[in-house]
Simulated scan of single mutants.
Amino acid sequence: MPNILLTRVDNRLIHGQVGVTWVNHLGANLILVANDEVAADPVQQNLMDMVVPDAIQTRFFSIDKTIKVIHKAADRQKIFLVCRTPQDALRLVKGGVPIKELNIGNMHFSEGKEQIASTVSVDEDDKKTIRELLDLGIKVEVRRVPDERVEIDIKKFV
């Protein structure tokens, strides 16, 4: 069983909050980014690696590769799993990745989205996806950084 400490939805993927603040809080030694686009883009990977301390490993896998290899993770790997969208998280869960808790940290506002928290905006598909994750028994929270309290009760918005 892979040692997944937390799974986070953040459309920025790895940045200062993820690469330093969350990693230190969780005690993670591996950030696994599960995203099809970034898995195929070494430039984005290199930019994200710049904000991660040298002692922390990073992996950039497609959603399908994550599903295929996550169960081969070594016990010593303390994994912080990061994906861009709740839809990616749901694909991981449906693919057998043992996600118990989902932190939603950042989902940018765009046309057709409703802002439900300071850094989280959702459309109808996002709401449907989050409802499905909740129905599957996944604990879902909205929180930017570890030392702040959960910003909203997500169940009220989906």
Score class of each variant (00 low, 15 high):
3 N>T: 06
5 L>R: 01
7 T>Y: 03
11 N>A: 08
14 I>A: 01
15 H>Q: 10
16 G>I: 09
20 V>A: 09
23 V>L: 06
25 H>C: 15
29 N>S: 09
30 L>W: 01
34 A>Q: 03
34 A>I: 00
34 A>K: 00
35 N>R: 02
35 N>A: 04
36 D>H: 04
38 V>I: 10
39 A>R: 03
39 A>S: 12
39 A>K: 02
40 A>C: 12
41 D>A: 06
44 Q>D: 15
45 Q>W: 05
46 N>I: 14
47 L>W: 06
50 M>K: 12
53 P>H: 12
55 A>T: 13
56 I>W: 05
59 R>H: 07
59 R>G: 00
61 F>P: 02
65 K>Q: 15
66 T>F: 02
67 I>G: 04
68 K>V: 06
73 A>W: 05
74 A>L: 14
76 R>I: 14
77 Q>N: 15
77 Q>D: 15
79 I>S: 00
80 F>R: 00
81 L>K: 04
83 C>D: 09
84 R>W: 02
85 T>G: 08
85 T>D: 12
86 P>T: 06
86 P>E: 07
88 D>V: 01
89 A>I: 03
89 A>E: 00
94 K>I: 09
94 K>S: 13
95 G>V: 08
98 P>Y: 09
100 K>F: 06
103 N>F: 00
103 N>M: 03
106 N>M: 09
108 H>P: 09
109 F>M: 15
109 F>E: 14
110 S>Y: 10
110 S>F: 07
110 S>P: 07
111 E>A: 12
118 S>P: 12
118 S>E: 15
119 T>V: 12
123 D>A: 10
126 D>T: 09
127 K>R: 15
128 K>C: 09
129 T>R: 04
133 L>N: 02
138 I>H: 05
140 V>M: 04
142 V>E: 03
143 R>W: 04
144 R>C: 13
146 P>M: 04
147 D>Y: 14
147 D>G: 12
147 D>C: 14
153 D>F: 08
154 I>K: 02
155 K>V: 11
155 K>H: 11
156 K>R: 13
157 F>V: 09
157 F>Y: 13
158 V>H: 05
158 V>D: 10
